[in-house]
Simulated scan of single mutants.
Amino acid sequence: MSFRPPFVVGSTVTHPEICTAFQCGNMGGMRRSKRTNTLIIISDHTKALYDDKWYGDTLHYTGEGKRGDQTLTKNNRTLNESDHNGVEVHLFEVLHPTQYIYHGVVSLAGKPYQEDQADEDGVMRKVWMFPVKPAFPISVDSTAYQFYTKAQQKRAEKLSDEALARHLNDTEKQKAAQRDVTSSVYVRNPYVAEYAKRRAKGICQLCGQPAPFCDQKGRPYLESHHIEWLSQGGADTTSNTAALCPNCHKKMHIVNDPKDVQKLRAAII
């Protein structure tokens, strides 16, 4: 008989709720509960030690063991034999600290394999990777996913050239991951955006250069930009909207230099 926790697939729960529901320990990324006949695996992307990866709809989950080569013992053995030992495997994913996304029951989608990863001391070692696939793919919250992608980007920036090449060798062989991400969006007034572009007369209001190309209708291509971002309380009005070339638009969202902000405010007066 399968175990049903008191929360649904796709919900975000707390760490204490997991421990209480599954009657498991509170330490480690893999937790065996004999009381519920389950193995809980936690893919925590906010921690740098284990390198779990999504390929398509399958998570390649790193086994247990912080130092030295990992072995197919203890929880690793339980997961390795989960297709015939009767133990249910439940997956939780952490994209943002303290937020555990429940993926439900997962099953092995392929034969476990070994790859090289650094251990807790930075020494390269062999780890076991377990391809596990949820029964039902879920959507993840866009805010949590953006936090995850930024953390992964920072992680990539810290890699040596050798380590980066090793990661690329692994990913070149695999199918791209596809995640359903839910988000709330600001509904922008199309008339405000159109007015801002016409007011600019084909000239970027930051760099002062003509639009880099024309669209399919022959109109100079510029993008509308809210000087004070909507996410920070800015208004969707003509007095807060400028027209920028794609390069300057990207610059404003990455750098957002106060001097550039002042320049745009002066340009639309």
Score class of each variant (00 low, 15 high):
Pro134Asp: 08
Tyr195Val: 06
Glu162Gln: 14
Leu159Arg: 12
Gly202Val: 00
Ser139Ala: 15
Gly110Ile: 00
Phe147Thr: 14
Ala156Glu: 15
Ser183Glu: 12
Phe213Arg: 05
Lys197Asp: 01
Asp116Pro: 00
Leu108Asn: 02
Lys201Gly: 00
Phe130Tyr: 08
Ile203Thr: 06
Ala144Cys: 12
Pro131Asn: 05
Val192Glu: 02
Trp229Gln: 03
Phe136His: 13
Lys217His: 14
Phe213Asn: 02
Val140Thr: 12
Ala144Ile: 03
Ser231Gln: 11
Asp116Cys: 03
Val106Lys: 00
Lys201Asp: 12
Gln117Ala: 12
Lys197Gln: 04
Ala200Gln: 03
Gln216Asn: 14
Glu120Phe: 13
Asn169Phe: 02
Tyr221Cys: 08
Ser139Arg: 12
Ser231Phe: 00
Ser183Pro: 00
Gly233Asn: 08
Gln216Leu: 13
Met124Phe: 12
Leu222Thr: 01
Val181Ile: 15
Pro210Val: 04
Phe147His: 11
Arg219Tyr: 12
Glu162Lys: 13
Pro137Glu: 02
Asp141Met: 06
Arg179Val: 15
Tyr191His: 09
Glu115Val: 10
Gln114Trp: 06
Leu230Ile: 04
Cys207Gln: 03
Leu230Gly: 09
Arg188Pro: 07
Asn169Ala: 15
Gly202Thr: 07
Tyr102Thr: 01
Gly202Ala: 03
Ala135Gln: 11
Ala196Lys: 05
His226Phe: 04
Val106Trp: 01
Cys204Ala: 06
Ile101Lys: 04
Tyr191Ser: 08
Arg199Val: 00
Ala109Val: 01
Thr143Asn: 13
Ala165Ser: 05
Val185Ser: 13
Asp121Gln: 11
Phe130Val: 09
Asp161Pro: 09
Lys173His: 10
Tyr145Gly: 08
Gln153Ser: 14
Thr149Cys: 12
Lys111Cys: 06
Pro137Trp: 00
Val187His: 10
Leu222Phe: 05
Gly208Asn: 07
Leu168Trp: 07
Val181Glu: 03
Arg199Glu: 00
Ser160Ile: 03
Lys154Ile: 02
